[in-house]
Design a protein around this nucleic acid. Sequence first.
DNA 1: CCAGGTATCGCAATCGATTGCATAACGGGA
DNA 2: TCCCGTTATGCAATCGATTGCGATACCTGG
Lengths: 339, 339
Amino acid sequence: MSATLKDIAKKVGIHPATVSRALNPRTAHLVNPATVAKVKKAAAALDYLPNPMAAGLRTSRSHTIGVVIPDLNNPLFPGMVRGIQDTLGRAGYTPLLVNTDNDPDIESHLVASLSARRVDGFILATARRDHPLLAQLSEKFPIVLINRVSDSVQLPSVAADEQHGIRLAIEHLYGLGHREIAHVAGPAWSSTGHERSQAFTRSMKDHGLVTSKRISAVSSWSIEAANECATRLIKADPAITAIVAANDQLALGSIAAIKGMKRRCPRDISVVGYNDMPFMDIVDPPLTTVRVPQNDIGSEAARLLLSMLVEEGSTSVKQVRLTPELILRSSTTHPRVEK
Amino acid sequence: MSATLKDIAKKVGIHPATVSRALNPRTAHLVNPATVAKVKKAAAALDYLPNPMAAGLRTSRSHTIGVVIPDLNNPLFPGMVRGIQDTLGRAGYTPLLVNTDNDPDIESHLVASLSARRVDGFILATARRDHPLLAQLSEKFPIVLINRVSDSVQLPSVAADEQHGIRLAIEHLYGLGHREIAHVAGPAWSSTGHERSQAFTRSMKDHGLVTSKRISAVSSWSIEAANECATRLIKADPAITAIVAANDQLALGSIAAIKGMKRRCPRDISVVGYNDMPFMDIVDPPLTTVRVPQNDIGSEAARLLLSMLVEEGSTSVKQVRLTPELILRSSTTHPRVEK
DNA sequence: CCAGGTATCGCAATCGATTGCATAACGGGA
DNA sequence: TCCCGTTATGCAATCGATTGCGATACCTGG
């Protein structure tokens, strides 16, 4: 089939071991520059491609990384995957992508099958806060968490600065004159949901605003759940003039709720989303939202994991936070003056 | 690290080769059922995981499939990827996913790196109609095309029945009373764009409608390009009452064009999309569109490729067409009666 | 001219699973 | 009782790259 080291060796008239050294940048200095040149030429002529299985078998490193995503259909993740793929690929690594559907059982199963594939490390984007797998897995593999942090185990992670993002949203609303601001929070089991909810409470307090009865968490990251949730909030407290949603789906659900109650967004109630998924600029109304740098999160996570793979000694656990920005569109405006 | 066949062999007191045969369903009949049972128990006790590199090195089959996608950020593809992953995973295969950004150079590079990884086959979703790579690649690997067909080389493919989908759209508009129907077509180099454009012409003719000057192709699958394109069409022929767009992005661009010309959709001009991407139900106006079964396309392609991997003998080239359906929403209505 | 380096390269073992071939045990028919 | 065919298992080569160790040649300073 494809050419092997032995073929090159025969062609040049040297031993396969020397060919191996010549072709490996890390060991090329051990072999005569002239032979290196000859080897490279022969390799190109035979269009030699190293067999990763043979190399992997010997070195027990597959140069693959398991990437575990809750749901690829959620537009938040493809961007991150892109970032991961690009920087991993540049370093000669290949991501193995899987979906968990947010199901812990499926996740265990998939992680097991990735382990069987002998991945060199993991990038996990699964959202659950309490996860028994994490502790075990982190003992056997280098791991980087993305779009979340772990509160039980201390693990490297790359995520958005949720505190900052939520603050941006609230400062924006406050600047517009809003004082009665509610929060449609993410599921309690979700890491990001939890963080953003806490950030909401803190930022509101910093602005001297009250949050009592103004926070309600959905049971799942769905438009329908947010619809119910926002409806409940507004009914309980009709004075509400603005809603900060824990992500864009929840913002969409909140807008649906507002429409469902025969009120208008942003005229009656302003809504701010989070993530800036694709197409959020063309929904009705175009959504003001906090944009998280999805590509950067992915590439940063890949970089972090790669660095862990080379310098195994370092014990420092890096937790990277990327700064989000506020995207102003049309779902927010001044609160209506009371007549 | 992990247990090997030798470990199991030692534990049971037999030769590693026997263990290998016992664990392989295809050869298990060669070994005494009693020993098979003992081997399985021991394997479970040591939680043995076969080393795919060792197996792959010996058998030169990696049990991986290269999956080449133009752009994962396009919501059309994650669904297909899901379908692929699910059925490949069930068969013990792992997809290796890459993005090409519709760039032929990047594509060649990525395909090369997947070949280096010794994938067992390819699933290609790249859209270009004329592709030099295809012919060469198909000689060395089993290949299945998705969401497109090849017109130069005869290759297995899984795609939507574009003819049927476009017909659904036109029948719908015709039934509403539209007669002046235009088509915002996909790029000429695109397989789907080309097919849908041809289907448009044919279906229009079948309804006795004229298409002259009513078809204009965009240069890229973007909202902006469609905006320009639709603007041009409408200006050239103000009588137009409906637009069939070659996909949802183009439909969104067409709607933007209508709004930009201070006209309204669907009151002044109806628009039908294609694909039914996520969130097309909440854009303004909610988009009437032709839904293609994304998951099914993916899983069908995976099934097809897997079947090609086992029965290498068969020379028949299967070309599967899946039936799309029309999703009625609010971007279409009766044409306005002339005053 | 020799001892001690250094630069290059060959040798052979190794990673873990697979598989053609050989071998041993066993049972049944002549 | 002997021969032959199954059945069950062992043996050893093999896949292709990596790498510790040893060997050779060459060079430099003393």
